[in-house]
């Protein structure tokens, strides 16, 4: 048994999930995370590199990676792909200017082999801004209905008011949990999900 497998097994046992927050710069990724954590959001600065947040939600430990979204950092996103259970793609619903850019980056991302099978939540953020695009509009503009490779869902939300943030996170956790911990019929994640079907051998020491 390789080291990775052992790590995976232990991770599964502890009911952990690894979630990647991605999206263009200024979408509100950091603000959403801080809001969910009950932190002050009034003076958040742009993210240099990345932040990691770990907290327990619905009895799962979530390891959330919040990676900076400016153009120069996007090539580095791939460094964070390994072992990702879910992607939360945050969209600034008031940013019509860059919605095409946003679409392209999302579709590029979904082609990554290492993200195969990861659940995808699209947060249509900043719904509190008057005149911002609705989740329906963003669904169409991002071409979400064309996505067959991933389980996905789009949720309107606002990091400022907190609207729908927890509900969105609930969907992510349920979708991942369903696949990793309860699915026993049709493994859709290749060897990973097979790992979770059989209980870890008792002699495994980490």
């Amino acid at each position: 048994m390789g080291l990775l497998t052992i790590i995976r097994k232990s991770r599964r046992k502890e009911k952990e999930m690894r979630i990647l927050f991605l999206g263009l710069d200024n979408a509100g990724k950091t603000t959403i995370l801080k809001k969910i954590n009950g932190e002050d959001i009034s003076s958040i600065s742009p993210t240099l590199g990345f932040n990691i947040k770990t907290f327990v939600h619905r009895s799962y430990t979530l390891n959330i990676w919040d990676v900076g979204g400016q153009r120069t950092l996007r090539p580095y996103w791939r460094n964070y792909f390994e072992q990702t259970d879910a992607i939360v793609w945050v969209v600034d619903s008031s940013d019509r200017v860059r919605i095409q850019d946003c679409k392209e980056e999302l579709h590029n991302l979904l082609q990554e082999d290492r993200l195969t099978g990861a659940s995808l939540l699209v947060f249509a953020n900043k719904q509190d801004i008057h005149g911002s695009m609705t989740d329906k509009e963003i669904h169409d503009l991002l071409g979400l209905s064309g996505i067959k490779s991933h389980h996905w869902k789009i949720s309107p939300c606002s990091a400022v008011t907190g609207y729908n943030l927890i509900a969105g996170l609930d969907w992510v956790v349920e979708d991942v949990a369903h696949r990793l911990y309860y699915s026993s019929m049709v493994p859709d994640r290749g060897e990973n999900s097979l790992d979770t079907v059989s209980p870890p051998p008792p002699q495994t020491v980490v």
Partner: peptide, 25 residues
């Protein structure tokens, strides 16, 4: 609220920002 400046040269910025302004390249 946030100030994000990229790939720029020779600029004078008179700024009031709530968070740390950032520059890159």
């Amino acid at each position: 609220h946030q100030f994000r400046m990229h790939s720029s040269t020779n600029a004078d910025v008179y700024l009031s920002a709530v968070s740390n302004p950032i520059i890159e390249h």
